[in-house]
Structures are given as structure tokens and as C-alpha cells.
Write a protein that binds this DNA or RNA. Structure first.
Length: 501
DNA sequence: AAAAAAT
């Protein structure tokens, strides 16, 4: 059997790989590394979770042992579609490059230029970037790409989905013709094939695993739900509670960023150990949320599809699809977050009557019918939600209660969400009324969540999320100002009037 | 019906 020692990697690299506890390369690593070390172009067709990242990081480290970088002239460039993926690649360079003294620079948006400029100035051996920020630096003249010797394009098909291809083409043209290119994509749509023909020179083609297959170790279930958001939230809460025993950690996927925020707030209000991750969040919040989730400090991560692909979060026990994904491939990527490395995992998808069309295209794609959870929710704890959703009545009622805050909701959609989540909570007869909860809880256990909510709120209001000095004052306003203070468990009838239908 | 990425 092939081991890492057979692939031609340098002793320094092998030592770091051993220290990380690996001896046997994955198929993509075994296939790609020898070619990369021979300075050949590589076309790697591989899903995430196949060890793809190490298949370019390890040979790059070996090749970089000779020579050194000059100021503003990076020696290698790795392009990634999302900031989290770029950061993850950087972590790999730290992990496997522990015996090297290489300068690694991460150029991503959402963070300050200063650090990045300093690293460029110092001379980067490895530059890891998302396209936008890279071009920004380039246009400011802080960066020359004429010394790039190895170019890696990762997740090319996803870059295509995200409309990055023109940027990629532009960047490729700025890098010398004589470079070595390592190109990775999970699928090969025509546009990507065209790109490889344009920018790769007689590449070694390494292909592993097929697209659109779901791991056999993932138990998939469909769960019926009403189509209103509050109904879905109730079903989800019941489901999480029912699964509690085997639930180590979970990612909950929503289709929209707005719903990520809403669901996150609602779960926190219901005292679930939850965090959120989507692309409109402050970069610092994104980083902390992901780090905390990876470290096990956070049990539940509510996320948009920014987290669907590529992120290496080992050992996620559950994936919940709060929404059925619109594009069926996303389903495969989402549930691929669990059941990794032969471990078992569970994937639940909430399905409303409106979702049947998308559901059938998913089942067609994966080539099997997903079974329903016992036909309905009868085996789960009974949901005690009332017939009417309080949302519409409440939204109408609010200006009457607070005439001075007219227009406030438009600026601050969060206030509405807070009310909604608080109302959800107030309805739950077992739990303390909202007033008591906000009065007692904030300074204690869920402080980080409140801080995160606040950061997200401020982000949405277009303010910088670092108002540390005003913190206590703001917390009280955010928490108490928008909650239905004084109503306790009872919701006045006028607030429950359903105006539609 | 969306999300992602430069500000």
C-alpha cells in the first residue's frame, strides 16, 4: 500500500504529516502529489472531504524549500472562493509547514488591509486569496504577480457558480506562462473544461469519487412541516430535542441569510446553544462562530450555503435542512458535512407542501427516495404552537404601541425578529415569561450569543460592530426595548388578529 | 425563491 513516504515529499514535510498522525494518503493525494512534485500541471477532480487541500499543500511545501520570496512578489498563489476556505488552507500551511520558515499571507475581504500589506511587503512564499481582495491589492500596486511559480485554483466549479470566472481569467493572465498550475474542481461543466484548456498545459488528470453521491453512513430523513416560518421553527425545535441523545453538534442550513439570522435568534431565545454563519455577518463574528463550532464550544451552527461546501468540520453528528435547497447539488454538499471519514451521521430535511418540486429533483439526483420520519411528527414531543402566528398581528400592532418609533422596523428588521422570538418563548407555558428571562439571563451563560446578536444587529444597521464602551447600555435597549415587556405569558388578543385570509 | 465576493 502507498504511504506518504512513497510520494517523494521532503523529510520536513513527511515529519509534519507524521506528527499530524497520517500515514496513508487519500486517493487524490496519492494521485496528485507525485505529479505536482514533478512540476506538472494537475487537473484534480475531487469533492471536498477527499483530502484535496493536502494534495496541493504538501507538494507546494516541498517545492518551496528552495529559494525565497521578494517583497511584493509572492512565489505561489492559491485562489479560493470563500474567506473561510482560504483561512482553512492557511491553517493547513501552518500545520504541515511547522518545520519550514515560510511567510504565508492571507488576502481576504472583510478584514483590515494593514496586516496583509505588511505580509506582502515582507515577501510572501504563499499567498492565499479570494479573488476580490487580491485584485484590490493588485490595483493598488501593492502586489506583483510576475514571480508566481505555482498557481492553485481550488473549487473552480464553485467559483463559476459565484461568477468569479472573469476574475480568475484576469488573474491567470497576470501570472507568467511558465508557472505550474494545480486546478481543482468537484465537477467539470463545459465552462470549466474551457478554462482548463485555456490555462493548463498537458495536465495530469486525477479523478476520484463521483459527484452527487451521498455517503452511505448518513441516515437521511424527511420531516413534514407547515410552511410558515414559526411552524418550521417549532418542528425543528421538537426535532432537535428528540435527537438530543446522539446529537453532538449540528449544522442547520437555511436558504436565505435573513432566515439564518431569524432562526439563530429564535434558537438562542429558546436556550439552544446556537451560533450563526452567513456572508453578511461581520468577518470577526464569522471567524469566531466557526472557530467556536469547530472547538465544540458551540453545539449548533445555523448557516447559509457559505458553510455547505469545503469547510472541514470534523465529526458533525447532525445536519438539519431548515429549507429544502433550491439547487439539488447543494443538498449533497450540505449533508456531506456529516458522516465524514466513515463516521455515522444523520441528516433531516424539513419539507413543506411547497417544497415537493425541489425534493423530487434531489431524489432524482441522488438516485433514491428519502424516507419520511415515521410519516409524521407523531413520535416527537407535541408542539404546542397556537393556530395563528403572532407575527402579522404583532407587526401591525407595534407602531400603535410605540408611535415614537415609527419607521424603526425598516431600519432595524431585528426588532421584529426579537419580538417574534420573544413571543415564541412567551407562548411556551413551561418557560418563564420573557421579562424574567431578559432580566436574569443576559449577564450569565449566553453572553457570547448576545454579543454576537448585537454584532449582527449593528452590522445590519451599517455600524461597525465594536461599540464596546456602550455595551451595557445597548444591551438593555436591544433586549428590553423590543420585547413585549409586561405581557408575560399572555398575548393580548388584538395582537393575534390575522389580517390575511 | 439564494448565496458567495471588493468597498
Amino acid at each position: 500500500m502507498t504511504t506518504f513516504a512513497d510520494l517523494g515529499l521532503s523529510p520536513k514535510v513527511l515529519n509534519a504529516v507524521e506528527a499530524a498522525g497520517y500515514t496513508i494518503p487519500t486517493p487524490i493525494q496519492a494521485g496528485a502529489i507525485p505529479h505536482a512534485l514533478q512540476r506538472k500541471d494537475v487537473l484534480g477532480i475531487a469533492q471536498t472531504g477527499t483530502g484535496k487541500t493536502a494534495s496541493f499543500v504538501l507538494p507546494m511545501l516541498t517545492l518551496l524549500e528552495q529559494g525565497r520570496a521578494r517583497a511584493r512578489m509572492p512565489r505561489t498563489l492559491i485562489l479560493e472562493p470563500t474567506r473561510e476556505l482560504a483561512a482553512q488552507v492557511e491553517e493547513n500551511f501552518v500545520k504541515y509547514g511547522k518545520n519550514h520558515r515560510l511567510n504565508v499571507a492571507l488576502l481576504i475581504g472583510g478584514v483590515s488591509f494593514d496586516d496583509q500589506l505588511r505580509k506582502l511587503e515582507r515577501g510572501a512564499d504563499v499567498l492565499i486569496a479570494t479573488p476580490g481582495r487580491l485584485l484590490d491589492h493588485f490595483e493598488r500596486g501593492k502586489l506583483l504577480l510576475s514571480a508566481v511559480d505555482i498557481l492553485v485554483i481550488d473549487e473552480a466549479d464553485r467559483m463559476l457558480d459565484m461568477g468569479f470566472i472573469p476574475d480568475i481569467e484576469r488573474i491567470c493572465k497576470l501570472i507568467p506562462f511558465t508557472r505550474q498550475t494545480l486546478f481543482f474542481s468537484a465537477t467539470m461543466p463545459p465552462e470549466i473544461t474551457k478554462l482548463t484548456e485555456q490555462f493548463l498545459h498537458s495536465p495530469a488528470r486525477v479523478e476520484v469519487a463521483k459527484a452527487a453521491t451521498t455517503a452511505k453512513t448518513v441516515e437521511q430523513k424527511l420531516v413534514k412541516s407547515g410552511k410558515k416560518d414559526w411552524e418550521k421553527r417549532a418542528v425543528l425545535r421538537d426535532l432537535i430535542r428528540a435527537e438530543d441523545e446522539g446529537l453532538k453538534n449540528a449544522i442547520i442550513f437555511c436558504n436565505r441569510k435573513k432566515d439564518v439570522s431569524e432562526l439563530f435568534r429564535s434558537l438562542v431565545k429558546h436556550e439552544f446553544d446556537a451560533g450563526a454563519l452567513h456572508g453578511d455577518m461581520d468577518q470577526r463574528a464569522r471567524t469566531t462562530m466557526l472557530a467556536n463550532f469547530k472547538d465544540g464550544k458551540l453545539k449548533i451552527l445555523v448557516a447559509s450555503d457559505v458553510a455547505a461546501r469545503g469547510l472541514d468540520i470534523p465529526d458533525v453528528s447532525h445536519v438539519f435542512n431548515f429549507d429544502v435547497p433550491i439547487h439539488s447539488e447543494d443538498y449533497v454538499h450540505r449533508i456531506g458535512r456529516t458522516g465524514r471519514a466513515g463516521r455515522s451521521g444523520k441528516a433531516f430535511t424539513l419539507v413543506t407542501p411547497a417544497d415537493v418540486k425541489h425534493l423530487s429533483s434531489i431524489e432524482k439526483l441522488i438516485g433514491e427516495d428519502i424516507s419520511w420520519l415515521d410519516g409524521d411528527l407523531s413520535t416527537l414531543p407535541v408542539s404546542t404552537e397556537p393556530e395563528e402566528a403572532p407575527r402579522r398581528g404583532r407587526r401591525k400592532a407595534e407602531p400603535k404601541r410605540r408611535p415614537r418609533n415609527e419607521g424603526r422596523e425598516r431600519e432595524r428588521p431585528q426588532s421584529e425578529i426579537d419580538i417574534l422570538a420573544a413571543a415564541d418563548k412567551a407562548k411556551d407555558a413551561e418557560e418563564a415569561p420573557v421579562v424574567a428571562e431578559v432580566a436574569v439571563a443576559p449577564r450569565n451563560a449566553d453572553k457570547p450569543h448576545r454579543a454576537a446578536i448585537k454584532a449582527d444587529n449593528e452590522q445590519r444597521r451599517g455600524k461597525p460592530s465594536q461599540a464596546e464602551p456602550r455595551r451595557d447600555h445597548r444591551r438593555e435597549r436591544d433586549d428590553l426595548g423590543s420585547a413585549p415587556v409586561g405581557f408575560g405569558d399572555e398575548i393580548p388578543a388584538f395582537m393575534l388578529i390575522d389580517t390575511k385570509i
